[in-house]
Design a protein around this nucleic acid. Structure first.
Lengths: 239, 239
DNA sequence: GGCTGTGAATCTTTTCACAGCC
DNA sequence: GGCTGTGAAAAGATTCACAGCC
């Protein structure tokens, strides 16, 4: 790729879409296995459905039931699960708790992850209050912002800290994962800083395409993107 | 536990993760064309990159430059664009404004979309203040909640209305798209109501799998899902 | 009988590579 | 020379269908 005028980092093209991810391509799974991206996405759905079952008191389930609840085809559910190992019983199905455990393990959810939220605007505050995180092994250990009028305020059980002190905060709080909820203009810069400080997993909500070096794991959620795709379908459903 | 197939999701290579989508499968594009889901996701990235170019004053670009900026492979970019028509010039490239226009048209972004946000919690408020929407053709015309202490309060330039009045609000505000930012427990119920009231495009942030009838267009963004997928990659990058 | 696990078949998406045009 | 547009090849994901086991 002949390069050009703009600082476009021309290494491997990573399918960016709405949410992309990883860099170097194949990532080994929990036991040397490789889990395709699409499978990962579905595994989280299965976990969710399994949680609901557990809450209802169901102890067993089957690929048919679980698939219906997660909104997927039973065959692919079985294929997904078979990538983790053989945890079902023919003629019977799966044990809810056991399966939950195996999926959680494969996805790295048995350990606690320490998350810093960068940007305490509306979205950052909403995220820091989002209950779904803590219950799933994600602990929000820091909330940072640069605006003097925001620094020091308290959100939930966290006090907003100054981005200028990011270095020490990231280190002392032992942050594994950073969530970027800052305006587009500030995102690449902060992203670079995070990477420099050793953060290798970043979830960005900023409406820009971020460039990260190989080995850094970036996912992106773009709210405008979601609405745009919805608009496309709406246009073709309506009229 | 209906055993039937809920079409729900399709998720191909689109790191869909948490987003599934459309129902009936093939959706015709702007001119009878069919745009694959993965292409749609990338088109929004191209739009974003094109916007940045326009802001910088670039008038022309090429698949190489645009692809680098959007983080994709140039070949697939050309293939994506070729699905919309032939808008480039061999040996030269694409005209930024023109291409922006064509993509916007294909995606249904030339018209204004009227969005209602259901749920004025932290997330709903964050969404209603999200600047990226208005600038891209999405106008937030209503913000609803059910909590008496929230109804009537003002968020940005909107007053929170009562979900009990959803019927009239949806009709009088001519809502095309609804965003669901309510707790999981309330989501399916409200989703059903929306569908009954004729809303056929829904973006859900609720952490549950929603079932919608065929013909309704549901996308889902799940913040916990995103972190979970990140955790998987982090686990395999770290140690 | 019922349900898992999986090879084989099918379908989709991406990449290659080059002809065609400026 | 450079870059688009696109068939053809490759890679990947999903579905089918059935053997194997409880």
């Amino acid at each position: 790729m002949p390069t050009e005028h703009h600082p476009a980092d021309a290494d491997q093209a990573v399918p960016e879409l709405g949410l992309d991810m990883i860099e170097g391509q194949p990532v080994t799974g929990s036991l040397g296995r490789i889990l395709p991206e699409a499978t990962l996405a579905r595994l989280t759905q299965y976990l969710r459905a399994l949680n609901a079952m557990q809450a209802r008191g169901d102890e067993q389930t089957s690929s048919g039931v679980l698939a219906a609840e997660a909104g997927v085809n039973p065959a692919i559910l079985r294929k997904d699960l078979s990538l983790l190992g053989s945890y079902g019983t023919r003629g019977v199905g799966y044990v809810v708790m056991e399966l939950t455990e195996h999926i959680s393990k494969a996805m790295g959810l048995l350990r606690q992850w320490r998350v810093a939220i960068i940007g305490a605007g509306n979205l950052g505050r909403a995220l820091s209050g989002y209950g779904g995180f803590r219950s799933r092994g994600f602990e929000i250990v820091a909330l940072l912002d640069s605006a003097p009028e925001v620094v020091g305020t308290v959100v939930g059980d966290l006090q907003v800290q100054d981005i200028a002190d990011m270095d020490e905060i990231l280190a002392s709080a032992e942050v594994n994962i950073a969530v970027l909820s800052v305006p587009g203009g500030a995102a690449q810069d902060l992203c670079n800083k995070l990477v420099e400080r050793g953060v290798r997993s970043i979830l960005s909500f900023a409406p820009v395409v971020l460039q990260v070096p190989t080995g850094v794991n970036l996912r992106k959620v773009d709210l405008a993107t979601e609405l745009q795709i919805l608009a496309y379908h709406a246009q073709n459903l309506d009229t």
